[in-house]
């Protein structure tokens, strides 16, 4: 093979490498733009030509977490000197942090929505992966009547468009008072992720040799003991990968959250766009909120890199 590498081939390969680099830069440009805007002073966020080199600032994050109002009169030098650094940063932008009667800083809606996202995504992930692992084992090891049909049924529940499911769920939740509640969204996301988790975990279970458990059964383990002591540890990587996928799906979900929540249990995805009202939005604050929101997913993508193919194809395609 090495003998027949012509100069055209080498040239073609070099061109391909350059093309790949160009494509990567184009694909990452929007993400880079979010990250860099999150550290810009407001007046540099929307300049022409775009500002690429600048002194990074933390002020967008301070503004993201606090309630602010326009400064009518600039702060007196004493006020300015007495203020902590994070308040000065806001003063510099021509705004002041809103405080209540006792002088306590008022938080913006963001931290609360971020927490809601965390609570709802983690709880629904634990439930979906927990139930999914058991069910996948059941399908993998035992004969189930109409297995193909049942698995199709399970998968099809995931394929339903969210708005289609949301209409009756909205009415039912309203009837039982689950609208705008954490539990309501947790149930929806669990149901949504459960089918995915069954399909993906079944692939992982199928890969664990049956002989492991059979040996344990011969040794006198009960089936349950064999499952918990032999199969689960073997499936740990698969469980972790499935959990990360479920977490990302729940974390990113928008339509259900938009329809089912408005305040108390609202997650970050419907909240972040709602900040762009009329007039000129402060894109640095939106970028800061977006940046923090995307960060966990970006980290998880790197951790998951070897399982992405499998996860995205519901366990059907493995390397």
């Amino acid at each position: 093979m090495a003998a027949v590498r012509t100069s055209t081939e080498i040239g073609f390969n070099r061109a391909a490498v350059v093309a790949v680099l160009v494509v990567t830069i184009i694909f990452l440009a929007p993400i880079y733009w979010i990250a860099s805007t999150a550290f810009k002073p407001r007046n540099l966020a929307t300049t022409i030509p775009p500002t690429i080199v600048f002194q990074p600032e933390i002020s967008p994050f301070v503004k993201l977490f606090t309630k602010r109002s326009q400064l009518r009169t600039p702060p007196t030098p004493e006020e300015y000197a007495a203020a902590p650094w994070w308040e000065r940063v806001v003063f510099d932008g021509g705004e002041k942090i809103v405080r209540d009667g006792k002088g306590e800083v008022q938080w913006s809606g963001y931290p609360n929505r971020f927490m809601n996202s965390l609570i709802i995504a983690i709880t629904s992930t634990v439930l979906a992966v927990g139930m999914g692992t058991f069910t996948a084992y059941g399908f993998s090891r035992f004969k189930v009547k109409g297995e193909a049909d049942l698995l199709f049924f399970i998968l099809s529940t995931r394929m339903l468009p969210p708005v289609v499911v949301a209409i009756p769920m909205f009415l039912m939740y309203r009837a039982v008072g689950l609208n705008d509640s954490h539990i309501g969204l947790i149930i929806l996301y669990t149901a949504f992720n459960l089918s995915f988790s069954v399909w993906l975990m079944k692939g992982f279970m199928d890969e664990i040799p049956k002989e492991y458990e059979e040996a344990a059964l011969v040794d006198g383990y009960t089936r349950m003991e064999a499952f918990f002591k032999i199969v689960l540890p073997e499936a740990a990587t698969g469980i972790a990968a499935t959990a990360v996928f479920c977490f990302i799906t729940a974390w990113n979900e928008y339509a259900f959250a938009l329809i089912m929540t408005n305040r108390r249990a609202q997650t970050a995805p419907p909240f972040i766009p709602s900040q762009v009202g009329s007039g000129l939005p402060d894109w640095t604050v939106i970028a800061a909120g977006t940046f923090l929101f995307l960060l966990p997913v970006a980290i998880f993508t790197f951790l998951l890199r070897n399982h992405l193919l499998r996860g995205m194809s519901f366990g059907a395609i493995r390397k």
Partner: peptide, 17 residues
């Protein structure tokens, strides 16, 4: 992995940007 990043992100939040 870098090229795969966009599909993992939230459509709503990145779409807004």
């Amino acid at each position: 992995t870098l090229l795969l990043l966009p599909m993992m992100l939230s459509m709503a939040v990145v779409g807004l940007f």
